[in-house]
Design a protein around this nucleic acid. Structure first.
Lengths: 333, 333
DNA sequence: CGTTATCATGAAATCGTTTTCAAAAATTAT
DNA sequence: ATAATTTTTGAAAACGATTTCATGATAACG
């Protein structure tokens, strides 16, 4: 592998000049530029990026933490982030935490070892106290998930409102026995998102004088299969709910699917609301009433936010971007 | 940020010794090890990874090329690759090509600039001739997609067989008017996968004396929405097919969804076969008969293959891993 | 024409590690 | 006790770029 020194020698110039050509610095005569380019071509030279990173102290790489790549919601976030990161000339290191504290902590070291210029968290596994230590080592921003204690830039949605409008929609449609599905729950630690939505769910219930029944709240429901399980659990209840508010369209699809298997009609026997508005929401029979989240845009905004934070040091006030949520009514309610 | 020199000074030792401790080299006394560890803790030291990479000439990072992150099939591949890469201590750089030749070529430079130790291609956008140049710069392997000219390690499936058994299944079920959907087609360049499956499709047709009708072959069909479009196009034909062999469960779902919208029954009016056996295949009504591909395993095998190639230089004979494919019958046929 | 600016270039320092290489210390063998 | 190994350490040389800093050449200006 040829180095910059080989190019310099062949071109009859110094390494400095070659470097200037590589980086498009001003003050290099056209004549020498040409010589350098020819030498680079002749040797098939490409600058070693570790050396560049070491010397220039920037990596042009960001890390994105996602719990699971096969969860379409996170795939869409990732896609959104990638779009803008790539526009800014940054690469993407994906860090799949698999809902694991240790993995998350290990990945956070990427910042300490200067392997990435910044991190986007789309989920949080550890207590904020632990993560906080890393914020000094480089920019970390939140995308979708959040934490009250975290005073860092973030892109998020009013999940409480989402929980509220979904539940209210059920009530306005005449449903009074409404269940709620939490997402994946770590040991005594529920994602803020699920928790906030639940607050909205309870607010709507109490606003309309309905009681919150804890046997109608299900945990660890985050994919199609767990949705199916929820329906089976519901069928075992003495006093089953007639509507279920879920945390994703996957879960809703699982419930609808199992309902069909069990000979139940949706929404007559059991109504369902999803979350996200993924393509699958229009595929099921009946299609899913859902709370629409602009998934790709959330990712894009987060990407842009991180780029801004990285490029301009002047970390002005903690920026928080709030995107909006709305209900899309389909036939599952 | 403290450097190894600071640690050395505080511990009263040389940089070399500190480095040895970091890398668990033998021949360091317990006593000095302890001193170094204490100094590292005291200073909150973490080694700069660019410096490590530059000196040791390895990055512990691999790049994975995928056309689109939001396509679940590739998300599963990625997930599989990530599993083993992570086990081997490697990081994952995702390169979304968006079916773009230029982007693919740019990403391939990662190998020349020594930013990654190897690359896994899950799709191919450029002519092999162009990609071939990069194979000298570091290991590149193929995962799922392939090319006859490419003499590099690969993990793949017998797509021709997949096309054949799907089509034969239709025929055995009594369908004779069978359409075929190609995946995303670049300018005069069809993915080998689509092409191979089509060969199998044609083989089955001719084996049973059926004629290949080119108005029944559709192009650029790769997601739910394009599946819907295919169904609309079919309805415009004078002599429409009564069965459609698609390239993914997404496409099949789109067709089924649009059929319902148009008041057609599946499979009575139009039958459909998908590909992959994704969760969505069990969600649609009716559920989708599909050709099962072990998505995560394909990724895992590819990850393992690349790790092997990277770790042992002795690039023994080009390894080719062939996984099997089989049909899962459901109600869409 | 002398005096500043501006442009072009190269030598050498630097980024933060790891890896020789050599030498000193400790251990084992003879 | 001496020779031959084996451990343990540090000085200095990589790794391959970028970034001062200094200097010479040119152009611009009064």
């Amino acid at each position: 592998m040829p180095t910059i020194a080989d190019v310099a020698k062949l071109a009859g110039l110094s390494r400095a000049t070659v470097s200037r050509v590589i980086n498009n610095h001003p003050y290099v005569s056209e004549e020498k530029k040409k010589l350098v380019r020819e030498a680079m071509d002749a040797l098939n030279f490409y600058p070693n990026s570790s050396a560049q990173k070491l010397r220039s102290q920037k990596t042009e790489t960001i890390a994105v933490f996602v719990p699971l790549l096969t969860n379409p919601f996170f795939a869409y976030l990732l896609e959104g982030i990638d779009t803008v990161a790539h526009d800014y000339g940054y690469q993407l290191l994906v860090c799949q935490t698999r809902y694991d504290k240790e993995k998350e902590l290990n990945f956070l070291r990427l910042l300490k070892t200067k392997q990435v210029d910044g991190i986007i968290l789309t989920s949080i596994e550890n207590n904020w106290e632990k993560i906080k230590n890393f914020t000094e080592c480089g920019p970390i921003i939140l995308c979708n998930e959040y934490d009250d204690q975290a005073k860092i830039p973030s892109v998020r949605l009013d999940q409480e409102y989402g929980g509220y409008i979904g539940t209210r929609h059920f009530i306005e449609k005449g449903y009074t026995k409404i269940a709620y599905c939490r997402g994946f729950c770590r040991d005594q630690f529920v994602s803020r998102i699920s928790a906030e939505r639940e607050v909205g769910y309870k607010r709507a219930l109490s606003e309309f004088g309905l009681k919150n029944r804890k046997e109608w709240v299900f945990e660890n429901v985050s994919d199609v299969e767990s949705g199916r399980q929820v329906l089976r659990k519901i069928l075992l209840l003495k006093d089953p709910p007639t509507a279920v508010f879920t945390g994703s369209d996957q879960v809703a699809a699982g419930i609808i699917n199992e309902a069909a298997t069990c000979g139940l009609r949706v929404p007559e026997d059991i109504a369902v609301i999803g979350f996200d508005n993924q393509p699958i929401a229009e595929i099921t029979v009946p299609p899913i009433t859902t709370i629409m989240q602009p998934m790709q845009e959330i990712g894009q905004q987060a990407g842009k936010l991180l780029m801004d934070v990285i490029e301009k040091k002047d970390q002005k006030d903690v920026e928080d971007i709030l995107l909006s949520l709305h209900l899309i009514e389909r036939a599952s309610t």
